[in-house]
Design a protein around this nucleic acid. Structure first.
Length: 519
RNA sequence: GGCCGGGUACCCAAGUGGACUAAGGGGACGGAUUGCAAAUCCGUUAUUCAUGGGUUCGAAUCCCAUCCCGGCCUCCA
């Protein structure tokens, strides 16, 4: 069976076949982050799902060329009004950075950036994003170190955007309106609305006072969207035949996907909010510019993340970035698992309980991994093997089948857990004389991990600074001294104090170890 | 108003016509272990799948209706 994926374009699950199926090569474009703030866990759920898809394709033997853009163009905070009002987002970010700088909230590595330089601001958040992405195991973020073209910055493609806009003008799909802005003419593209269901007719009928009337009067159709905005006052601006200004919000992806992956690509991913208008507009621009009937063949959209049952919002205090969670003691591996374990087409509920569950799950797998490695040369007993393989080895096909069924990660995790539970981890394992070894089991575990991607991530919470570490060690020593004297009251008091600090301890055969708990 | 996705145990979450008297994880409970804990190991924990109809030999799975939740239609992953 081949991979089956839900395609937003057709609104149904379809068997996946690459354009270049003969060479098993896949082109994949993911809408990446806007870099005027730290990305939050909702953003990362979308990026991580794209990563899981990519890893699944690789497990199935595809070679994936994955491109993820970095949106570093300022744009406006108010998109509804295309007349240029609203604040430049990069300007806003600069302001915020400046304030954070004053209040000392900024990380030390950001102390000397110039908030008035939009490129520096974008650069700062780009690096922050890449750090987070790498800590969460996004393959693309590692790959980009040797192949920078895989994560293109929008600002580097402005001339190509101008070129595409010119092509659209030449072909009669775009026009310059009375306000000097270049708009895409949605009525010139029959398929407009196919992805989102928002056809020009429906958009017109649903207009109802939501759009600025002055702008609407200028456009041929309310759904016509901006391609180029002449604006000599904009922070980031470039020359163009329509005056100095900046590009529209959708054109960058059409251009970068086209230049780096080709006019027709296999996969395109993003968050569900990208479906309209962003991806709808991309399709229109790309198809009209290239003249090809298709742009991306499969559209993959991740639904929104909610936090503790509520919509994520800054006012509710449930708005988290990766660094927020790490500061609270969460590990990157746990964050990754918590964000990928719910099916991408369901709203996922991020909870701290879930984060802890994920943490424990990973610890158990890590323990299994260590134990299998320790006995890797030992043959498995017949009681554990079927058709020559151990439980994990035999679970591999079911693991793959789960992923092939529209990326059923939770199902795949279930398969892994069930197989893992067949091993009595920790003790001296039973041994047989069969051909399969514990090392083969280890290999199977690693194969599954190529998709889950958690065993190779940081599994321990940040240890804190030296002072804190010394204090923790001192408390533990204090407690162990009390225990030696059978002074249980004092021992328990020390343990409670540590707990208060967010430190949990475990007494093992090799002494006492500690770890940070997520609060 | 239009268009999507969803409602499965205390929580998270698979399963989408027969092997379901419904995976897996967490929690809770009982046991082993421990000074007591934590961690670990063993066991128990949904005759039931939002509700009401229908189709079928057979439904959590298909159809209809109702209720509820989330998203998009406006910047957002």
């Amino acid at each position: 069976m081949t991979l089956r994926l839900y395609n937003t374009l057709t609104k149904q699950e379809e068997p996946f076949a690459a354009l270049d199926e003969a060479n098993r090569r896949v082109s994949f474009y993911s809408c990446g982050p806007t870099v005027y703030d730290f990305a939050h866990i909702g953003n990362f759920r979308s990026f991580l799902n794209a990563d899981v898809l990519r890893r699944t394709l690789e497990l199935l033997g595809y070679e994936v060329r994955h491109v993820m853009n970095i949106t570093d163009v300022g744009h406006m905070t108010d998109d509804a009004v295309a007349d240029g009002s609203g604040e430049d987002k990069m300007q806003l970010a600069a302001k915020r950075l400046l304030e954070d700088k004053k209040s000392g909230k900024l990380p030390t590595d950001a102390k000397d950036i110039d908030p008035n330089d939009p490129y520096a601001v974008a650069d700062f958040y780009t690096h922050a994003f890449l750090d987070d992405a790498r800590s969460l195991g996004l393959r693309i973020a590692h790959e980009v170190q040797d192949a920078p073209e895989l994560m293109p910055r929008a600002t580097a493609y402005v001339p190509a955007m101008v070129e595409m806009i010119q092509t659209l003008m030449d072909k009669g799909h775009a026009y310059v309106a009375d306000d000097g802005v270049v708009y895409f003419d949605v009525q010139s593209f029959e398929e407009y609305g196919k992805l989102s269901g928002n056809t020009p007719d429906r958009i017109r009928s649903g207009e109802g006072g939501r759009v600025d009337e002055a702008t609407q009067a200028i456009k041929r159709h309310p759904a016509d969207f901006m391609l180029w905005k002449p604006d000599p006052t904009h922070l980031m601006r470039w020359p163009s035949p329509w005056g100095e200004g900046y590009p529209g919000w959708h054109i960058e992806c059409s251009v970068m996907a086209g230049s780096l992956l080709g006019e027709e690509i296999d996969l395109h991913s993003g968050g569900e909010d990208n479906i309209f208008p962003h991806h709808e507009c991309e399709i229109a621009q790309s198809c009209c510019a290239t003249g090809k009937p298709q742009f991306a063949r499969y559209w993959f959209h991740t639904r929104f993340l909610i936090v503790e049952g509520e919509k994520m919002s800054k006012s509710k205090g449930n708005f988290f970035t990766v660094r927020d969670l790490i500061a609270k003691g969460a590990t990157p591996a746990a964050i990754r698992l918590e964000l990928i374990k719910t099916h991408y087409r369901s709203n996922a509920n991020f909870t701290f309980q879930g984060l802890q569950n994920a943490q424990r799950q990973i610890e158990r797998w890590a323990k299994l991994e260590q134990w299998l490695r320790m006995y890797q040369d030992r043959p498995l007993p017949g009681s554990l093997t079927a058709e020559g393989g151990g439980p994990l080895r035999m679970a591999l096909p079911a693991f793959q089948e789960a992923l092939k069924a529209d990326l059923n990660v939770a199902g795949a995790i279930g398969v892994l857990s069930e197989a893992a539970s067949k091993h009595a981890v920790g003790g001296d394992p039973p041994q047989g004389d069969g051909g399969a070894t514990y090392g083969d089991e280890l290999e199977a575990l690693h194969t599954m991990n190529t998709v889950l991607g958690v065993l190779d991530l940081q599994r321990e919470a940040i240890r804190g600074d030296d002072d804190e570490r010394d204090l923790i060690e001192a408390k533990i020593a204090q407690r162990n001294a009390a225990r030696a004297n059978k002074d249980w009251t004092a021992a328990d008091a020390a343990r409670d104090e540590l707990l208060e600090m967010g430190i949990a301890i475990k007494d093992g055969p090799e002494g006492t170890t500690w770890s940070r708990i997520v609060k």
